[in-house]
């Protein structure tokens, strides 16, 4: 479904990503692992087009080339993005936040409505008219995912969904991700928390210094302590 090949990215003069290649199939949960600053967030931002991929990079999604297109076109093609810092619209109510995310229904997928989302995130349903700024961190994290789902994506990019959340909320988050997988969505998430990754993901890609160092299933990763030690400092 998503195929990234030879992805390069730059911030000014700094070369951040070096020929990153990875693939995600529909219904799969893929996790990008790596240290802070390894390039996980930049990979996601380059896929969604917020960071412009360098020449020669290719990001194909559902058969179409995305590299070089503006973010809104990529999002409309069915790629949802949930940023690390949540970035909900604090002045807008829950319902208005969802409205911003709303896009046309997608063929072959049951369209998301606020009601369907509230079934997965019951907390949100109880605070429809509350401004985003008056929600707790965990509630905001749920809202940012729900908002992206309103665009009816086929694949959703989640940047560090467990960061800064209390252990109980992290469990809720893991459940939500598993539920999305059941809905048939592909999920690509970035994580530093291996425990969390192991609970939700099928496959892992390890990134370090902007380069892919290792790929494989999480079960295989369990048996490779050297890999974990070298790239994940576990």
């Amino acid at each position: 479904m998503l195929s990234v090949s030879r992805l390069n990215a730059f911030y000014g003069r700094a070369h951040i990503l070096h020929d990153v290649s990875l693939e995600a199939a529909s219904g799969e949960v893929l996790v990008l692992l790596g240290r802070n600053g390894a390039g996980k967030s930049t990979t996601m931002k380059s896929i969604i087009g917020i960071v412009r991929p360098g020449a020669g990079s290719s990001v194909t999604f559902a058969g179409a080339e995305m590299a070089g297109r503006p973010p809104h076109e990529i999002a409309r093609a069915g790629l949802g993005y949930v940023p690390e810092e949540r970035r909900i619209f604090t002045d807008l109510t829950v319902m208005e936040n969802l409205e911003v995310g709303r896009q046309a229904p997608r063929e072959g997928l049951a369209p998301w409505t606020p009601e369907r989302l509230f079934a997965i995130f019951p907390n949100l349903g109880r605070m429809r008219d509350r401004p985003g700024g008056r929600m707790s961190g965990g509630e905001q994290q749920m809202l940012t995912i729900a908002r992206t789902l309103m665009g009816n994506p086929r694949l959703i990019l989640l940047d560090e969904p467990s960061e800064g959340l209390a252990p109980v909320i992290v469990e809720e988050m893991a459940n939500a991700i598993r539920q999305l997988k059941q809905e048939g969505l592909a999920v690509v998430l970035s994580e530093q928390n291996l425990h969390f990754a192991a609970r939700v993901a099928d496959r892992a890609v390890i990134i370090e210094k902007g380069t892919v160092r290792w790929q494989g299933t999480l079960a295989t990763l369990e048996d490779e302590p050297e890999v974990k030690a070298q790239y994940l400092s576990v």
Partner: peptide, 13 residues
């Protein structure tokens, strides 16, 4: 109950 959850010793960092 309020914080650690069902037995995870390592939280969402």
């Amino acid at each position: 109950e309020v914080y650690l959850g069902s037995g995870a010793t390592s939280g969402g960092h």
